[in-house]
Simulated assay, not measured.
Amino acid sequence: MPTIQNFIFISFMLFSYFGFSQTVEISGMVNSFVEVENIHVLNKAEQAFTITNAQGEFKIKAKLNDTIQFSSLVHQSKYVVVDKNIMMFKAMRVMLEEQVNELDEVVVGKVLTGNLFSDINNVDGKAPINFYDVGIPGYTGRKKTQSERRLSQAGDFKPKMLPGMLLGGASFDPLINAITGRTKMLKKRVEHEECEALMRSVKVRLASDFFRSNPLDEAYRMEFFYFCADDPNFVKRCKNQTDFNILLFLRSKYRDYMQNRSEGSD
Results as ranks from 00 to 15, higher is better:
Q99F: 15
N101I: 10
E102K: 08
E102F: 11
L103K: 08
L103G: 02
L103D: 11
L103A: 14
L103T: 08
L103P: 03
L103Y: 02
D104H: 07
E105W: 01
E105M: 08
E105N: 04
E105I: 09
V106M: 08
V106C: 03
V106L: 11
V106P: 00
V107K: 09
V107Y: 00
V107P: 00
V107H: 02
V107N: 02
V108W: 02
G109T: 04
G109R: 01
G109H: 04
G109A: 01
K110D: 11
K110R: 12
K110S: 08
V111W: 00
V111R: 07
V111P: 01
L112W: 01
L112D: 06
T113M: 03
T113L: 02
T113H: 04
G114F: 05
G114L: 06
N115K: 13
N115A: 12
N115D: 15
N115P: 02
N115M: 13
N115S: 13
L116I: 15
L116D: 11
F117Y: 15
F117N: 12
F117W: 13
S118F: 12
D119W: 06
I120D: 08
I120M: 15
I120S: 05
N121R: 15
N121S: 13
N122T: 02
N122Y: 00
D124V: 14
D124C: 05
D124E: 13
D124Y: 07
G125K: 03
G125N: 03
G125V: 00
G125E: 02
G125M: 01
K126N: 08
K126C: 03
A127I: 10
A127Q: 14
P128G: 02
P128Q: 10
P128S: 07
I129A: 14
I129Q: 14
I129R: 14
I129V: 15
N130C: 05
N130K: 09
N130W: 06
N130M: 08
F131E: 11
F131G: 04
F131P: 07
Y132F: 13
Y132T: 14
Y132N: 15
D133M: 03
D133R: 03
V134D: 06
V134T: 09
V134Y: 02
V134K: 03
G135V: 00
G135M: 01
I136M: 12
I136Y: 12
I136D: 07
P137K: 10
P137W: 06
G138P: 00
G138K: 11
G138T: 14
Y139Q: 10
Y139G: 04
Y139W: 07
Y139F: 14
Y139D: 10
G141E: 10
G141W: 04
G141A: 06
G141H: 07
R142S: 13
R142Y: 04
K143I: 12
K143V: 08
K144T: 04
K144A: 13
K144E: 12
K144S: 13
Q146I: 08
Q146V: 12
Q146C: 01
Q146R: 10
S147M: 10
S147R: 03
S147N: 07
E148R: 03
E148L: 06
E148S: 09
E148P: 01
R149Q: 08
R150G: 04
R150W: 06
L151M: 10
L151N: 06
L151R: 07
S152E: 15
S152R: 13
A154I: 05
A154C: 06
G155M: 06
G155F: 04
D156S: 12
D156A: 15
D156T: 14
F157Q: 01
F157S: 00
